[in-house]
Write a protein that binds this DNA or RNA. Structure first.
Lengths: 152, 152
DNA sequence: TAATTATCTACTAAATTTGTAGAGTTTATA
DNA sequence: TATAAACTCTACAAATTTAGTAGATAATTA
């Protein structure tokens, strides 16, 4: 039931981009340095997110990435699905990669897994990056710190 | 966020043992055949469950495994933890394998992951194998089938 | 004693995760 | 229009985890 590094990095990168929304394109190098994510790895991740329609990119000098939509229209669930695929613990209760199992009707494990999938997506599909930004600002106030890391 | 084969097999095996509770020891071979689980793999799994205090075993002729407690005192969460360790998506919100992360106080991802961990354990730590047995019986009635498979 | 059944350690193979390398393409701007 | 800066793309590689196997050992029953 682990969150992959890929998704972890993706969430952090998008929080970073959300905190800098509407300030123009931001380079991979900057995100990588600030969030301490291996740059080459991050390249792959951001590419996937662009192809998923979550980010826009500009090539060339002064290029970089920015959100394709405002932070309140991007959910954590969307990002995690883009990178790791289905959130459901088993495919027979997955929306995006459904595969029937042998004894579906009588399978009682399936019922529980469906409950779990719903519990997880209730959180992830409701939570937007606008929410995440509010939380970052809240906790920064409390801490009276101005170090911007969204590290896990 | 996947359920491992190990946990899947373990759940099925314990449902099988729960359905046969108080009928004496049951051999690995029987469970393996009925639930279509590779026997050698199942041996390892049941051994772990015994060491975790979930099963008792008897060696020798007419030996086998049985539940160490009644099915209503064993939860799915306990079984999954015994085999796969922590249920939490990241260690910094795990009860059984907690490790602090670098920026814990300001980490906003942590907050969400904590919500998810709680949502998952709410399901898994409440659900007992007595509940699972009721569900099996319910769905068997509905299906008017007498094939006993708890397959996923 | 013989057959049966769990125990235990170690190993292997496959899949997945976590990266890295390097050549190519596009663009701003001097 | 040259050049440096940035993303794009494909492929590879190392590390870790998952899934499964092998085979010898120990305990028990009849």
């Amino acid at each position: 039931m682990k969150l992959s590094k890929k998704s972890d990095y993706a969430l952090r990168a998008i929080i970073y981009l959300s905190m800098h929304y509407n300030k123009g394109a931001i380079q991979i190098r900057e995100i990588s340095a600030n969030e301490k994510i291996p740059q080459k790895f991050l390249e792959n991740i951001l590419l996937v997110l662009r192809k998923a329609g979550i980010l826009n990119s500009k090539i060339g000098l002064k290029g970089g990435y920015e959100l394709a939509r405002s932070p309140d229209l991007i959910t954590l669930g969307e990002v995690i699905r883009a990178l790791d695929g289905a959130i459901a613990p088993v495919d027979c209760v997955s929306k995006i990669s459904y595969k029937p199992c042998s004894e579906e009707v009588t399978c009682v494990i399936r019922g529980v897994m469906l409950d779990i999938r719903n519990a997880i997506t209730d959180v992830l599909d409701r939570m937007t990056f606008a929410d995440m930004c509010s939380r970052v600002r809240d906790s920064m106030e409390k801490k009276e710190s101005n170090v911007l890391t969204y590290a896990i």
